[in-house]
C-alpha cells in the first residue's frame, strides 16, 4: 500500500480551475519531484494535498484513509508537513524562538528534546540561536524552515521550490540536505522545483505537469533521459 495516493484530482482556487485529473502515488522513503514549466500548477498541487487550495473532485488517501476534505492543521497533525516557498520563518524572531514556535503545541519536555535533536542534525543553527532569522542568509533560512518542519516529526515533507532565489552552489547544497532527510531520517519527500535537472537527480519518481495535466509520471531517471520531453518542457540540453 502506498503511503500517499492521489486519484483523479481536480482542484484550483474558487472559480479558477487549475489542476485536471491528477493521479499520483508515493511509497515510504521515496522522493517525488514535481516539475514543469511556470504556471503549470505545481504549487497548486501541493496546496491541494495540504488542503489550502480547493478540491473539486478526486480522492487523497494517506496510509489508506481518506483525507481529501480534512483541514490543513489536521493533516499537519497526521504527519503531512508543507513548507511554503516564502514567509516560512518568522524573520523578527530569533532562530531559537522560531524553533520554539515550531514546537508550540508540544509538551515542554518533548519540545526541548525535539529542538535538541534538530540542532544536532543541523549544527549550523546552534551557532545562530540568538540571531534574528532576518539576519540569516537565504540558504540558512531554508534550513531553519526545514528544521522547524522536522520538529513535528512529519512522515511526508512537501517542499515548494525551496531553492528559489538561492545561489546555484547553495541550492545544490540544500538539495543534498533534502536528499539526506530520506537517507538519515527516513522521510518521504515531495519536491516542487523550478530547477528540474537538479531535482530529478536526487529523486526516485517524477511528475511532469503541463497546464495542469500530467505529461509524464514515472521514474525520475527516465524523464531525465527522455530528450524530447526534457527539452520541450524543462529547457534541458
Amino acid at each position: 500500500m502506498s503511503l500517499l495516493t492521489v486519484e483523479g484530482l481536480n482542484a484550483g482556487y474558487g472559480k479558477f480551475h487549475i489542476l485536471f485529473d491528477i493521479s499520483l502515488n508515493i511509497e515510504e522513503k521515496e522522493i517525488l519531484a514535481i516539475v514543469g514549466p511556470n504556471g503549470s500548477g505545481k504549487s497548486t498541487l501541493l496546496k491541494a494535498i495540504t488542503g489550502i487550495a480547493d478540491v473539486y473532485s478526486g480522492r487523497i488517501t494517506f496510509k489508506g484513509s481518506d483525507i481529501t476534505r480534512l483541514p490543513p492543521h489536521v493533516k499537519a497533525r497526521m504527519g503531512l508537513a508543507y513548507l511554503p516557498q516564502t514567509n516560512n520563518v518568522f524573520t523578527n524572531l530569533s532562530v531559537w524562538e522560531n524553533l520554539k514556535m515550531a514546537a508550540y503545541t508540544l509538551d515542554e519536555s518533548i519540545a526541548r528534546d525535539r529542538i535538541e535533536e534538530v540542532l544536532s542534525y543541523y549544527p549550523m543553527l546552534r551557532s545562530r540561536l540568538g540571531f534574528k532569522a532576518r539576519s540569516l542568509s537565504g540558504g540558512e533560512r531554508q534550513i531553519l524552515a526545514l528544521a522547524m518542519t522536522l520538529i513535528r516529526k512529519p512522515e511526508i515533507i512537501m517542499l515548494d521550490e525551496p531553492t528559489a532565489n538561492l545561489a546555484p552552489i547553495i541550492a545544490k547544497d540544500l538539495l543534498k540536505k533534502i536528499q539526506a532527510l530520506r537517507e538519515d531520517l527516513g522521510k518521504t519527500i515531495i519536491l516542487v522545483e523550478q530547477n528540474a535537472k537538479a531535482a530529478l537527480e536526487i529523486s526516485d519518481k517524477a511528475l511532469l505537469l503541463v497546464s495542469g495535466r500530467i505529461e509524464y509520471s514515472g521514474f525520475a531517471s527516465k524523464l531525465l533521459a527522455d530528450t524530447e520531453l526534457s527539452r520541450k518542457y524543462l529547457g534541458l540540453r
Binding site: H73, A76, N87, N88, F90, Y104
Partner: peptide
C-alpha cells in the same frame, strides 16, 4: 498564516 499553521 504561519503562526496558525504551527497551531498558535
Amino acid at each position: 498564516q504561519l503562526a496558525k499553521a504551527l497551531g498558535i
